[in-house]
Design a binder for these strands. Structure first.
Lengths: 352, 352
DNA sequence: TCCAACTATTAGAACGTTCCAAAGTCAATG
DNA sequence: CATTGACTTTGGAACGTTCTAATAGTTGGA
């Protein structure tokens, strides 16, 4: 509470030691709650700390111990509610582990990502969790891959990288969703959104093709409509699909915001999404539930994946890790109304 | 690139000095691009840095200079797209100013906020930007208010606090919106969402009352339906309003997610939002545009406010500030279709 | 030849912690 | 009364920078 008497210099461990009539070593031990210190001494020191309004200097401690409790958290697009949820999961787990997250939102800018990685190293972060910007190559991460720095990649695989990875099982998630569309009677099903340069898109398309092939349905490139993975991209992709020769009756979308953009554009054009035409998203962001109509989607358990990614990193930092982890989280189809499930009841109680 | 020869010890400025045949002071000067250093010497040092794969240790530098380039960024609810957008604005500005954000998502938990403030001080942040958790009092912030630590509060005013504040002009924004509803012919207009313990809600309600009083319309407490400021809260609030004696025909909502929840519930009950009944939100989050129907709302210029808050903090840190700033950003009514503007054309080209 | 005024470089203390090795206390034991 | 061992406490080096003041080296003018 109180300021140090005379000077501007902040109170240090030495001031406390003087005030309490002990050595600075003793104060240091009190600060880390060492059992070596006698109760009476500890109280005396604690009183001095209180009185002088001492603030522990973690920077100095870090210099001495050559380790920090910073964790770098590199997010590719924080404006996307999906990544915001991921970030929340990561942040929470980091906080609970007694670490502190340094945030960087790269906005899909690989150059910025490079800068940020460099800076974080200079700040001595204990490890890094990152959802890589589009176009990140294993080569970009090579420096870190050498176990030099604990690091986990999340949500987007980087091919050829030997780093730990945590993400959803995109392929089986997409397969489940498309199988559901097929079961509802859809035959011409398009895939909307994303670009083939994104591993996530390729994985989801693979799932789409698995289901289509299984049912003996067409699933060639002419049924894939690429676009930016945004709401606007969803609108564009669906417009393109509607202009195509074989007009699809259902749309498996790269993610929820694409699906929301697509269902919006479909409604604008007079289609009744959920009966004329089916739409399914991926991720299950909060918004999906309140879309019109409520969006059928694949729950990726985003928040939990974030938490798990952080846990993996912590284990790696603390050396309790079994080495490189590759985790593909299970997904769950959430049937709402956008898929054309006219008969099926809404299986879900609205909650969030 | 290359690792130091023998030991595990990371390369330091001293290793560079030895390799380049100069003193560590010289290396230090090279690192800060001092004009004192001869070009030839600089090159020699830079070559050594490259060869030994030296990583600058900012922690050590901070200890010596007694200052860091960390900025604390305390967000009350990162899952809310409004705050995610705010966070993006802040992060970007901080990054551009050459600082590094430490993130904390308090999740409206005042206790966590207290912890986080303490921790950030221990890490020696140069300043803090924070959207306070609900229930934060001036007393909670008293320690910081003494100009001891540069700090700017954003989005939610804390009464009695002498800290800088940056946020939208809630009162005039809400007034504009309600005036628009009145101009469209609505007479029974309710206010939905938030709690009177939140300064932001009180300000927005004040604007609502300004407009209602001006038009000579009822605006007593019976037309205010409080709820959590979430989508679920919006649903609950509108249900309560529909049960009330004097059933309103229009709803001014605390924010966009409340409005989205409300318009969802109204549609579920068979109302056609935008003709039977009007709904207006506040914030203009990305989602508003793709709501069904697209949501009329008050653009708070969220991202810019974040950027501005960061700029104010930077000025305060660098001592170029004119002291305590109170900024109430102008707002802009964005007329879409939820307000019952059946006649008015949609004034906006869809863009995001 | 000497001094002034540069330019370029450097020695060494300082920043606030932690940690090691050593030392002081005290009661019990032989 | 010395010795032991458990329990507390401590001095001082070390962490990797920056910064001040001082030192060389060089040039040019008197």
């Amino acid at each position: 509470m109180a300021e140090p008497r005379g000077s501007r210099r902040p109170t240090t461990i030495v001031d406390i030691a003087r005030a309490a009539g002990v050595s600075k070593s003793t104060v240091s031990l009190v600060l880390k709650a060492s059992p070596l210190i006698k109760a009476e001494t500890r109280e005396r020191v604690e009183r001095a700390i209180e009185q002088l309004g001492y603030v522990y200097n973690r920077g100095a401690a870090s210099l001495r111990t050559a380790s920090t409790r910073f964790v770098g958290m590199i997010i590719s697009d924080l404006m996307n509610p999906f990544f915001a949820e991921l970030a929340c999961g990561i942040e929470d787990a980091i906080y609970k582990a007694g670490y502190v997250p340094i945030l960087a939102n790269t906005n899909e800018d690989a150059e910025r990502q490079t800068n940020v990685l460099k800076t974080m190293r200079e700040y001595g972060v204990a490890g890094i969790i990152m959802s890589p910007a589009r176009g990140t190559t294993a080569w970009n991460l090579a420096e870190f891959a050498g176990a030099a720095m604990p690091m986990v990649i999340t949500m987007r695989r980087v091919e050829g990288s030997a780093l730990s990875y945590v993400g959803p099982d995109n392929r089986s998630g997409a397969r489940d969703a498309v199988e559901h569309l097929i079961a509802l009677g859809h035959r011409d099903i398009a895939f909307l959104g994303g670009y083939a340069t994104m591993t996530t898109q390729r994985e989801r398309i693979a799932g789409y093709r698995d289901a289509m092939a299984q049912a003996g349905l067409r699933h060639d490139d002419e049924l894939v409509f690429e676009s930016m993975p945004t709401r606007a991209g969803g609108r564009e992709a669906v417009e393109a699909a509607l202009k195509s020769i074989r007009r699809p009756t259902a749309f498996m979308c790269y993610n929820d915001i694409v699906a929301i953009g697509a269902s919006f554009a479909l409604s604008e054009r007079g289609f009744t999404v959920g009966s004329d035409v089916g739409v399914i998203g991926f991720d299950d962001i909060a918004e999906a539930q309140h879309n019109a109509p409520p969006l059928t989607t694949v729950d990726a358990h985003t928040r939990q994946l974030g938490t798990y990614a952080a846990d993996v990193l912590m284990a790696q930092i603390q050396g309790t890790s079994p080495g490189v982890v590759e985790y593909f989280g299970s997904t769950r189809l959430v049937v709402r109304r956008s898929c054309g499930a006219t008969v099926a009841p809404v299986r879900e109680r609205i909650s969030a």
